[in-house]
Amino acid sequence: MSENEKKILILGVGNILYTDEGFGVRVAEELDRKYEFSPNVELLDGGTLGLRLMGPIMECDHLIIVDIVLNEGQPGDVFRLLGENLSKACAFTNSMHQTDLLDTLARCSLIGNVPDDVILYGIEPVNYKDMSSALSPELEEKLPGVMDMVLKEVEEAGGTYALRSVANPSMEKVYVPRDSSRNS
């Protein structure tokens, strides 16, 4: 990575045990499975780590977060949120990690080291309360579109990516599989 390249962090957050709550993590998993990124791009499953994400966040110049949001939209609506809208979306209390994420960004700011660009791709959930490793069918259908939005963001920030092949396979990782049950 050259000094002029922005360090880009794609951060998927959420709890994969609560249906759509795991959407951000599932996006990160699929991006990792399908694409290889340039050295200036890091992909991170942030799960529900909250304040433990301060290090990776403070080390990047461009932060792309993927998560669910309660933004008064319809289930499946996707929002690109910045600044004050990001703070409002992250302030809801119906999640196990959102207030931690807002706290984490605030603490990074207090230390004086917050990324130049912070973008949240948030999707309105269908179901985030039932315990299941499967996404709702509506959000499962939205995965490719949100992945495309994130990839476009990566390109605009100066990162590159290529489809994985036999020559550049994904590193061996063990993901919690999505089950085949149909959530409503």
Rank of each mutant, 00 (worst) to 15 (best):
N168E: 05
V27F: 08
I16D: 05
T93D: 12
E59V: 04
P39F: 03
L135K: 07
D130E: 14
E153W: 07
N113H: 08
N15P: 02
G112W: 01
P75T: 05
M147F: 04
P177R: 03
H62L: 00
P39Q: 08
D32L: 06
Y128Q: 08
R178I: 12
D117N: 10
D32W: 05
E30N: 14
S133P: 09
S2T: 13
M147Y: 03
D116E: 15
D103H: 03
L81P: 04
I8V: 03
I123F: 01
R52I: 04
M131G: 00
F79T: 03
V13D: 01
T93K: 15
N168F: 05
S38W: 11
V176H: 02
K152V: 06
T160K: 11
N15L: 07
N113G: 01
K173R: 15
G83L: 02
D148G: 13
G159E: 05
M149R: 13
L43F: 01
E29P: 05
M58K: 09
C60M: 08
L31N: 04
K173L: 09
L139I: 02
L163V: 01
G83I: 02
R178E: 15
E155S: 12
V176G: 00
G159P: 11
K173H: 09
A162Y: 00
A89P: 07
D103C: 02
G158A: 12
I16A: 08
G55H: 13
S95D: 09
A28V: 10
G83A: 10
S133N: 06
D100F: 05
V25G: 04
S132F: 00
V27K: 05
K88W: 09
G12A: 07
F92K: 10
S181L: 14
A134H: 08
V41T: 06
I111E: 12
N4S: 15
E5Q: 14
E3W: 06
C90H: 05
D20Y: 03
G83M: 02
P56Y: 07
D100I: 00
D61S: 09
S133T: 14
L110I: 14
K34G: 02
E29F: 04
K7T: 13
P115V: 09
V69G: 08
S2L: 11
E29K: 10
V66R: 03
Y161M: 07
Y161V: 09
G122Q: 10
V66Q: 03
G24K: 11
M1P: 13
G145M: 07
V69D: 06
L86C: 08
E140Y: 14
M54F: 02
T104M: 06
E3A: 15
L120N: 05
D45F: 01
E36W: 02
L102G: 06
S180L: 13
K152Y: 02
S133K: 06
I111V: 13
P75F: 08
F37H: 00
